[in-house]
Computed example of a mutant assay.
Amino acid sequence: MQNRSGKVFGVALGPGDPELITLKALNCLKKVDKIYYPATETAKGSSDSFSLVILKELNLEESRFVPITVPMSKDRSYAEKAYAELFLKVQADAFAGKQVAIVSEGDISFFSTFSYLLDGLNSNNIDFEMIPGVPAFVLGGSVGKLPLCTLKDKLLIVPDIESEEELQTLLSKNETVVLMKISKVRNWIKDFIKKHDMKFFYGEYLGTEKQFSCADIKSLEARRIPYFAIIIFYGNNRPLRPEEK
């Protein structure tokens, strides 16, 4: 009979700064038998992982690190295959009585690899726990030194925008709109900001050594927007500019 005394932990690492991991998450990583971390396989065959950078700063035993490699591709079948293979490994670990962690940057339930394992964990009665963390847009609010929302403000988080018209509609209905995965809109978003004189915060690679942020269009115009970037648009809760007072 299989031993099902093991447990799986979904552990959030925070947005990039190792000091922003929670105490609960760090204590969990210190005790588990394995730590699975996401890594991206580039077109040139190399591997890249922001999670690994964070893990190495936490003084953990690196022999427990196991990469989850997902090829860079718009074809989701490659990612789905990687998630299916990961689940089988994690299931085998749990049935063998091991304690294992699957880590992710940001929060564990927010655009996280762990989300794709939940159906399998639940349907196979595998004991698991999710440990939350700080997502990038929350760090963005702090770096930008403005509130994301106050009182009855509506906050909307959008991973993909198809058009300027769609964004304009969303901005008209919410006080704060956070755009994530904005490389898709890089061809027109700067002109949109200038055209509408938007109050915004831009941040890329937040919490890492490559962090850059700005709140003026002149600084943003010189940037090539990468995948790991966000823009926060402020509506009614934005502070007044000097000429508006």
Rank of each mutant, 00 (worst) to 15 (best):
T176R: 07
I193V: 08
E204Y: 09
I193C: 05
I182A: 06
E204W: 10
E209W: 08
V185E: 01
V185I: 15
V158I: 13
N187V: 03
F114W: 03
F114S: 04
G207R: 01
M198T: 00
L170W: 08
G140E: 00
G207M: 01
G144A: 08
D197G: 13
E166G: 06
S172Q: 15
N124V: 06
K190M: 01
E164C: 10
P132L: 09
G133F: 13
K173P: 03
Y205K: 15
S115C: 14
N174W: 02
V177Y: 05
I157F: 11
N187H: 14
L139M: 09
K195S: 15
P132Y: 08
N187K: 11
L117D: 06
S213G: 00
M180H: 07
Q211N: 04
M130W: 05
N124T: 02
W188E: 05
V138K: 02
Y116N: 11
T208E: 10
L151K: 15
K152S: 12
I157Y: 06
H196T: 11
I131S: 04
G141K: 04
T150M: 14
E209R: 13
L148E: 10
F137R: 02
D160A: 10
S183E: 11
L148R: 11
E204P: 13
D160H: 12
S172I: 09
E175T: 14
E164V: 07
S123Y: 10
I126C: 11
S112D: 07
D160S: 13
N187Q: 14
R186W: 09
Q168S: 15
G120F: 03
V178R: 01
L139H: 03
G140V: 01
E209K: 15
M130I: 09
N122K: 10
V143A: 10
G144V: 02
K173V: 03
K173D: 06
Y205G: 07
I157C: 12
N125Y: 08
S213A: 12
Y205C: 09
E204F: 11
L121A: 07
L117F: 03
K145Q: 08
I131W: 04
P132M: 02
F200E: 07
I161G: 02
L179N: 03
M130K: 14
G144Y: 02
L206S: 01
L121R: 07
K210L: 12
K184D: 12
L139Q: 09
S183R: 13
N122G: 00
G207L: 05
K173N: 06
G144L: 02
E166P: 02
S112N: 03
S183W: 09
C149L: 06
G141S: 11
P135S: 07
D153R: 00
L155C: 04
S163D: 09
K173A: 15
V185D: 13
